[in-house]
Protein backbone atom coordinates (compact mmCIF):
# COMPACT_ATOMS: atom_id res chain seq x y z
CA UNK A 1 0.00 0.00 0.00
CA UNK A 2 1.34 3.37 -0.95
CA UNK A 3 0.69 6.28 1.38
CA UNK A 4 2.89 9.00 0.01
CA UNK A 5 3.30 11.69 2.64
CA UNK A 6 2.40 15.21 1.50
CA UNK A 7 4.82 17.99 2.36
CA UNK A 8 2.38 20.33 4.07
CA UNK A 9 -0.25 18.16 5.72
CA UNK A 10 -3.49 20.03 6.43
CA UNK A 11 -5.43 16.97 7.49
CA UNK A 12 -3.82 14.24 9.56
CA UNK A 13 -5.75 11.17 10.62
CA UNK A 14 -3.93 8.78 12.91
CA UNK A 15 -5.43 5.41 13.78
CA UNK A 16 -8.96 6.77 13.81
CA UNK A 17 -11.53 4.38 15.23
CA UNK A 18 -15.26 4.97 15.54
CA UNK A 19 -17.52 2.43 17.14
CA UNK A 20 -21.31 2.65 17.35
CA UNK A 21 -22.07 0.09 20.02
CA UNK A 22 -20.46 -3.10 18.86
CA UNK A 23 -20.38 -1.96 15.22
CA UNK A 24 -16.99 -0.70 14.06
CA UNK A 25 -17.70 2.00 11.47
CA UNK A 26 -14.11 3.24 11.19
CA UNK A 27 -11.31 0.79 11.84
CA UNK A 28 -7.82 2.24 12.45
CA UNK A 29 -7.72 4.66 9.58
CA UNK A 30 -4.62 6.81 8.96
CA UNK A 31 -3.89 9.22 6.12
CA UNK A 32 -2.69 12.73 5.40
CA UNK A 33 -3.90 15.36 2.98
CA UNK A 34 -1.58 18.16 1.87
CA UNK A 35 -2.08 21.76 0.85
CA UNK A 36 -3.84 22.07 -2.49
CA UNK A 37 -4.40 18.35 -2.69
CA UNK A 38 -7.60 16.65 -3.81
CA UNK A 39 -7.93 13.50 -1.78
CA UNK A 40 -10.73 11.14 -2.75
CA UNK A 41 -12.60 8.69 -0.58
CA UNK A 42 -13.98 5.83 -2.62
CA UNK A 43 -15.97 2.89 -1.51
CA UNK A 44 -19.37 1.29 -1.42
CA UNK A 45 -22.26 2.78 0.55
CA UNK A 46 -21.84 2.19 4.25
CA UNK A 47 -18.06 1.83 3.98
CA UNK A 48 -17.53 4.55 6.57
CA UNK A 49 -16.66 7.48 4.30
CA UNK A 50 -19.19 9.87 5.82
CA UNK A 51 -18.28 8.83 9.34
CA UNK A 52 -14.62 9.72 8.80
CA UNK A 53 -15.56 13.08 7.30
CA UNK A 54 -17.91 13.81 10.20
CA UNK A 55 -15.14 13.03 12.68
CA UNK A 56 -12.83 15.44 10.86
CA UNK A 57 -15.50 18.16 10.95
CA UNK A 58 -15.92 17.70 14.69
CA UNK A 59 -19.44 16.35 14.37
CA UNK A 60 -18.57 12.94 15.79
CA UNK A 61 -16.08 12.15 18.50
CA UNK A 62 -13.56 9.45 17.54
CA UNK A 63 -13.59 6.37 19.81
CA UNK A 64 -9.80 6.20 19.47
CA UNK A 65 -7.02 7.78 17.48
CA UNK A 66 -6.32 11.38 16.66
CA UNK A 67 -7.45 13.82 14.00
CA UNK A 68 -5.63 17.07 13.29
CA UNK A 69 -7.24 19.54 10.91
CA UNK A 70 -5.30 22.73 10.13
CA UNK A 71 -2.97 21.63 12.91
CA UNK A 72 -5.77 21.61 15.52
CA UNK A 73 -6.89 18.52 17.40
CA UNK A 74 -10.53 18.15 16.40
CA UNK A 75 -11.55 16.30 19.53
CA UNK A 76 -10.09 19.07 21.74
CA UNK A 77 -11.04 22.25 19.91
CA UNK A 78 -13.73 21.57 17.35
CA UNK A 79 -14.86 25.21 17.30
CA UNK A 80 -11.51 26.49 16.03
CA UNK A 81 -11.51 23.76 13.40
CA UNK A 82 -15.01 24.76 12.28
CA UNK A 83 -13.84 28.28 11.45
CA UNK A 84 -11.22 26.88 9.08
CA UNK A 85 -13.24 24.33 7.15
CA UNK A 86 -16.03 24.26 4.63
CA UNK A 87 -18.40 21.29 4.68
CA UNK A 88 -20.91 19.89 2.24
CA UNK A 89 -22.91 17.16 3.88
CA UNK A 90 -24.11 14.13 2.00
CA UNK A 91 -27.72 15.17 2.42
CA UNK A 92 -28.45 18.58 0.92
CA UNK A 93 -28.64 20.95 3.86
CA UNK A 94 -29.13 24.48 2.65
CA UNK A 95 -32.41 26.24 3.41
CA UNK A 96 -34.82 25.36 0.62
CA UNK A 97 -37.29 28.04 1.62
CA UNK A 98 -34.64 30.75 1.24
CA UNK A 99 -33.39 32.06 -2.08
CA UNK A 100 -29.85 31.75 -3.44
CA UNK A 101 -28.61 35.07 -2.15
CA UNK A 102 -30.30 34.69 1.24
CA UNK A 103 -28.53 31.38 1.81
CA UNK A 104 -25.18 32.93 0.89
CA UNK A 105 -25.81 35.93 3.15
CA UNK A 106 -26.75 33.61 5.98
CA UNK A 107 -23.50 31.67 5.79
CA UNK A 108 -21.59 34.92 5.26
CA UNK A 109 -23.00 36.10 8.58
CA UNK A 110 -22.43 32.80 10.38
CA UNK A 111 -18.78 32.72 9.27
CA UNK A 112 -18.43 36.47 9.85
CA UNK A 113 -17.05 37.19 6.41
CA UNK A 114 -15.87 40.83 6.65
CA UNK A 115 -18.72 43.06 5.48
CA UNK A 116 -16.51 44.89 3.03
CA UNK A 117 -15.73 41.61 1.28
CA UNK A 118 -19.14 39.97 1.55
CA UNK A 119 -20.64 41.44 -1.61
CA UNK A 120 -17.65 40.42 -3.67
CA UNK A 121 -17.53 36.94 -2.11
CA UNK A 122 -21.22 36.37 -2.81
CA UNK A 123 -20.71 37.56 -6.39
CA UNK A 124 -17.82 35.11 -6.72
CA UNK A 125 -19.86 32.21 -5.33
CA UNK A 126 -22.80 32.97 -7.61
CA UNK A 127 -20.54 33.16 -10.66
CA UNK A 128 -18.72 30.00 -9.66
CA UNK A 129 -21.98 28.12 -9.27
CA UNK A 130 -23.23 29.58 -12.57
CA UNK A 131 -26.25 30.99 -10.76
CA UNK A 132 -26.04 34.50 -12.20
CA UNK A 133 -29.56 35.80 -12.80
CA UNK A 134 -31.02 33.36 -10.31
CA UNK A 135 -30.00 35.18 -7.15
CA UNK A 136 -33.60 35.40 -6.05
CA UNK A 137 -34.73 31.92 -7.03
CA UNK A 138 -35.87 29.79 -4.10
CA UNK A 139 -33.41 26.96 -3.56
CA UNK A 140 -36.23 24.40 -3.62
CA UNK A 141 -36.85 25.38 -7.26
CA UNK A 142 -33.26 24.73 -8.39
CA UNK A 143 -32.22 21.51 -10.13
CA UNK A 144 -29.91 19.11 -8.30
CA UNK A 145 -26.70 20.21 -10.00
CA UNK A 146 -27.32 23.88 -9.24
CA UNK A 147 -28.19 23.09 -5.66
CA UNK A 148 -24.91 21.23 -5.22
CA UNK A 149 -22.89 24.05 -6.76
CA UNK A 150 -24.65 26.54 -4.50
CA UNK A 151 -23.83 24.33 -1.52
CA UNK A 152 -20.19 24.42 -2.60
CA UNK A 153 -20.45 28.19 -2.96
CA UNK A 154 -21.76 28.46 0.62
CA UNK A 155 -18.99 26.17 1.85
CA UNK A 156 -16.19 28.28 0.34
CA UNK A 157 -17.69 31.71 1.05
CA UNK A 158 -15.33 32.28 3.99
CA UNK A 159 -12.29 31.04 2.02
CA UNK A 160 -11.58 28.01 4.19
CA UNK A 161 -8.20 26.38 3.58
CA UNK A 162 -9.80 22.95 3.95
CA UNK A 163 -12.93 21.57 2.31
CA UNK A 164 -14.85 18.44 3.18
CA UNK A 165 -17.24 17.36 0.44
CA UNK A 166 -19.36 14.30 1.22
CA UNK A 167 -20.65 12.78 -2.03
CA UNK A 168 -21.16 16.19 -3.64
CA UNK A 169 -21.97 14.72 -7.05
CA UNK A 170 -24.39 12.03 -6.02
CA UNK A 171 -27.66 12.35 -7.90
CA UNK A 172 -26.20 14.91 -10.28
CA UNK A 173 -26.26 14.31 -14.04
CA UNK A 174 -22.88 13.61 -15.74
CA UNK A 175 -22.40 17.00 -17.40
CA UNK A 176 -22.96 18.77 -14.10
CA UNK A 177 -20.68 16.33 -12.32
CA UNK A 178 -17.89 17.19 -14.73
CA UNK A 179 -18.42 20.87 -14.13
CA UNK A 180 -18.41 20.31 -10.39
CA UNK A 181 -15.02 18.62 -10.57
CA UNK A 182 -13.67 21.55 -12.56
CA UNK A 183 -14.66 23.79 -9.66
CA UNK A 184 -12.91 21.51 -7.19
CA UNK A 185 -9.76 21.64 -9.30
CA UNK A 186 -9.89 25.41 -9.48
CA UNK A 187 -10.14 25.60 -5.68
CA UNK A 188 -7.27 23.14 -5.21
CA UNK A 189 -5.14 25.21 -7.61
CA UNK A 190 -5.65 28.10 -5.17
CA UNK A 191 -4.18 25.93 -2.40
CA UNK A 192 -7.39 24.59 -0.85
CA UNK A 193 -7.08 21.04 0.49
CA UNK A 194 -10.11 19.05 -0.57
CA UNK A 195 -11.27 15.78 0.93
CA UNK A 196 -14.05 14.49 -1.28
CA UNK A 197 -16.00 11.26 -1.10
CA UNK A 198 -17.83 9.57 -3.93
CA UNK A 199 -19.26 6.24 -4.85
CA UNK A 200 -18.67 6.84 -8.56
CA UNK A 201 -15.46 4.88 -9.11
CA UNK A 202 -14.58 6.79 -12.28
CA UNK A 203 -14.38 10.01 -10.27
CA UNK A 204 -11.21 8.73 -8.63
CA UNK A 205 -9.47 9.77 -11.84
CA UNK A 206 -10.12 13.41 -10.92
CA UNK A 207 -8.34 13.08 -7.58
CA UNK A 208 -4.67 13.65 -6.91
CA UNK A 209 -4.78 10.72 -4.56
CA UNK A 210 -7.58 8.37 -3.69
CA UNK A 211 -8.20 6.04 -0.81
CA UNK A 212 -10.32 2.96 -1.21
CA UNK A 213 -12.42 2.25 1.85
CA UNK A 214 -14.20 -0.98 2.61
CA UNK A 215 -15.99 -1.84 5.84
CA UNK A 216 -14.33 0.96 7.75
CA UNK A 217 -10.76 0.30 6.62
CA UNK A 218 -8.47 1.91 4.09
CA UNK A 219 -7.53 -0.90 1.75
CA UNK A 220 -5.53 1.10 -0.77
CA UNK A 221 -4.19 4.64 -1.05
CA UNK A 222 -2.38 6.24 -3.97
CA UNK A 223 -2.57 8.32 -7.11
CA UNK A 224 -4.83 6.91 -9.82
CA UNK A 225 -1.69 5.81 -11.74
CA UNK A 226 -0.19 4.09 -8.72
CA UNK A 227 -3.42 2.35 -7.94
CA UNK A 228 -3.82 1.09 -11.47
CA UNK A 229 -0.25 -0.09 -11.75
CA UNK A 230 0.51 -1.58 -8.38
CA UNK A 231 -2.56 -2.01 -6.24
CA UNK A 232 -3.57 -5.23 -7.94
CA UNK A 233 -0.22 -6.83 -7.18
CA UNK A 234 0.13 -8.12 -10.75
CA UNK A 235 -0.65 -7.51 -14.40
CA UNK A 236 -4.05 -7.79 -15.98
CA UNK A 237 -4.76 -9.77 -19.15
CA UNK A 238 -7.91 -9.87 -21.22
CA UNK A 239 -8.82 -13.26 -22.58
CA UNK A 240 -11.50 -14.08 -25.12
CA UNK A 241 -12.46 -17.67 -25.79
CA UNK A 242 -15.17 -20.06 -26.97
CA UNK A 243 -16.04 -21.77 -23.71
CA UNK A 244 -16.02 -19.35 -20.79
CA UNK A 245 -16.77 -21.79 -17.97
CA UNK A 246 -14.22 -24.52 -18.63
CA UNK A 247 -11.57 -21.93 -19.49
CA UNK A 248 -12.18 -20.16 -16.17
CA UNK A 249 -11.83 -23.47 -14.32
CA UNK A 250 -8.65 -24.36 -16.17
CA UNK A 251 -7.08 -20.96 -15.48
CA UNK A 252 -7.63 -21.19 -11.71
CA UNK A 253 -4.84 -23.75 -11.47
CA UNK A 254 -2.64 -22.45 -14.28
CA UNK A 255 0.93 -21.47 -13.33
CA UNK A 256 1.52 -17.76 -12.80
CA UNK A 257 -2.20 -16.95 -12.59
CA UNK A 258 -3.19 -15.10 -9.39
CA UNK A 259 -6.86 -14.61 -10.02
CA UNK A 260 -9.44 -14.85 -12.74
CA UNK A 261 -12.89 -13.37 -13.12
CA UNK A 262 -15.63 -13.13 -15.73
CA UNK A 263 -15.91 -9.71 -17.31
CA UNK A 264 -18.80 -9.51 -19.74
CA UNK A 265 -18.26 -12.31 -22.23
CA UNK A 266 -14.51 -12.36 -21.69
CA UNK A 267 -12.20 -13.07 -18.79
CA UNK A 268 -9.92 -10.82 -16.78
CA UNK A 269 -6.86 -12.74 -15.70
CA UNK A 270 -4.54 -11.38 -13.04
CA UNK A 271 -1.04 -12.74 -13.46
CA UNK A 272 2.30 -12.27 -11.73
CA UNK A 273 4.05 -11.33 -14.96
CA UNK A 274 2.36 -10.32 -18.21
CA UNK A 275 5.36 -11.25 -20.37
CA UNK A 276 5.59 -14.76 -19.06
CA UNK A 277 1.89 -15.49 -19.13
CA UNK A 278 1.40 -14.08 -22.62
CA UNK A 279 4.06 -16.55 -23.69
CA UNK A 280 2.88 -19.59 -21.73
CA UNK A 281 -0.91 -19.36 -21.39
CA UNK A 282 -1.91 -19.98 -25.03
CA UNK A 283 -0.06 -23.31 -25.02
CA UNK A 284 -1.35 -24.23 -21.61
CA UNK A 285 -4.91 -23.70 -22.76
CA UNK A 286 -4.39 -25.28 -26.18
CA UNK A 287 -3.21 -28.49 -24.51
CA UNK A 288 -6.59 -28.55 -22.73
CA UNK A 289 -8.44 -27.95 -26.03
CA UNK A 290 -9.47 -24.49 -24.90
CA UNK A 291 -7.43 -22.27 -27.21
CA UNK A 292 -8.08 -18.55 -26.55
CA UNK A 293 -9.29 -16.49 -29.48
CA UNK A 294 -7.58 -13.40 -28.07
CA UNK A 295 -5.17 -12.73 -25.24
CA UNK A 296 -3.80 -9.22 -24.60
CA UNK A 297 -2.43 -7.21 -21.76
CA UNK A 298 -4.77 -4.42 -20.66
CA UNK A 299 -4.41 -1.39 -18.45
CA UNK A 300 -6.85 -1.98 -15.60
CA UNK A 301 -9.43 0.73 -15.02
CA UNK A 302 -9.77 2.00 -11.48
CA UNK A 303 -13.07 0.19 -11.37
CA UNK A 304 -11.24 -3.11 -12.05
CA UNK A 305 -8.82 -2.32 -9.28
CA UNK A 306 -11.53 -1.44 -6.80
CA UNK A 307 -13.81 -4.32 -7.62
CA UNK A 308 -10.87 -6.68 -7.31
CA UNK A 309 -9.56 -5.18 -4.07
CA UNK A 310 -12.97 -5.05 -2.42
CA UNK A 311 -13.67 -8.68 -3.38
CA UNK A 312 -10.33 -9.82 -1.97
CA UNK A 313 -10.73 -7.75 1.18
CA UNK A 314 -14.27 -8.95 1.83
CA UNK A 315 -13.22 -12.58 1.28
CA UNK A 316 -10.31 -12.15 3.69
CA UNK A 317 -12.66 -10.79 6.36
CA UNK A 318 -15.12 -13.63 5.92
CA UNK A 319 -12.27 -16.09 6.33
CA UNK A 320 -10.96 -14.34 9.45
Amino acid sequence: MNAGQPAEPRIIAEDLVKRFGSFVAVDHVSFRVGRGEIFGFLGPNGAGKSTIIRILCGLLRPSAGRALVAGIDVARDAERVRERIGYMSQKFSLYRDLDVEENLKFFGGIYRVPRAELGERIRFAIDMAGLGGREHALVSNLAGGWQQRLALGCAVLHRPPILFLDEPTSGVEPASRRRFWDLIHALAADGVSVLVSTHYMDEAEYCHRAALINQGRLIAVGSPEELKNTALGGDLLLLECEMLGPTLAALQSAPGVLDCSVFGNSLHVLVGSAERSLRELPDYLAQRRLPPTRLVRIQPSLEDVFVQLIAVDSAKRRAA
Binding site: I85, K91, S93, Y95, I110, Y111
Partner: peptide, 9 residues
Protein backbone atom coordinates in the same frame (compact mmCIF):
# COMPACT_ATOMS: atom_id res chain seq x y z
CA UNK B 1 -30.25 21.60 7.73
CA UNK B 2 -28.98 20.86 11.22
CA UNK B 3 -25.93 18.91 10.09
CA UNK B 4 -24.52 21.86 8.19
CA UNK B 5 -25.50 24.33 10.91
CA UNK B 6 -23.59 22.45 13.61
CA UNK B 7 -20.54 22.21 11.35
CA UNK B 8 -20.28 26.03 11.40
CA UNK B 9 -18.72 28.02 14.25
Amino acid sequence: TMELLVSTP
